[in-house]
């Protein structure tokens, strides 16, 4: 049952990372870590039923696809706002929203 403990540790690290980081990339890595913890559990616990390999392949392919999409989004976001810092991005989004609103009012 060691991998259960490993998964729990990974979860704890992931949550800690989620809390302390403002960089989008680090937030993303933390979320990945949490997801991997659960995947690890699934795969290891499914092995006795003979489903471990099947799940592993499935999990890998889904994970890769999702990561690709998220990374693409991250690149887009940091290009648009010029930063990867979450609080700065929020501040900029807010400015944009206000600009939009004032434009609507002007019309």
């Amino acid at each position: 049952m060691d991998f259960v403990i490993l998964a729990l540790v990974m979860l704890a690290i992931g949550i800690y990372g989620l809390l302390t980081n403002r960089q989008l990339l680090k937030v993303f890595i933390s979320i990945e870590l949490i997801a991997t913890a659960a995947t690890l559990n699934f795969v290891m616990l499914a092995s006795p039923q003979g489903l471990g390999e099947a799940l592993l392949v499935l999990a890998f392919s889904v994970d890769t696809a999702v990561s690709a999409v998220i990374l693409a989004l991250l690149v887009l976001v940091s290009k648009r706002y010029g930063t990867g810092d979450l609080s700065k991005i929020i501040a900029k989004m807010q400015e944009n929203a206000e600009k939009e609103e004032s434009e609507v009012e002007a019309q």
């Binding site: 809390l19 302390t20 980081n21 403002r22 979450l86 609080s87 929020i90 501040a91 206000e98 609103e101």
Partner: peptide, 11 residues
Amino acid sequence: GHVMTLKKGPS
């Protein structure tokens, strides 16, 4: 339209 500055970061 209410202007508000975030004094603390969200995290």
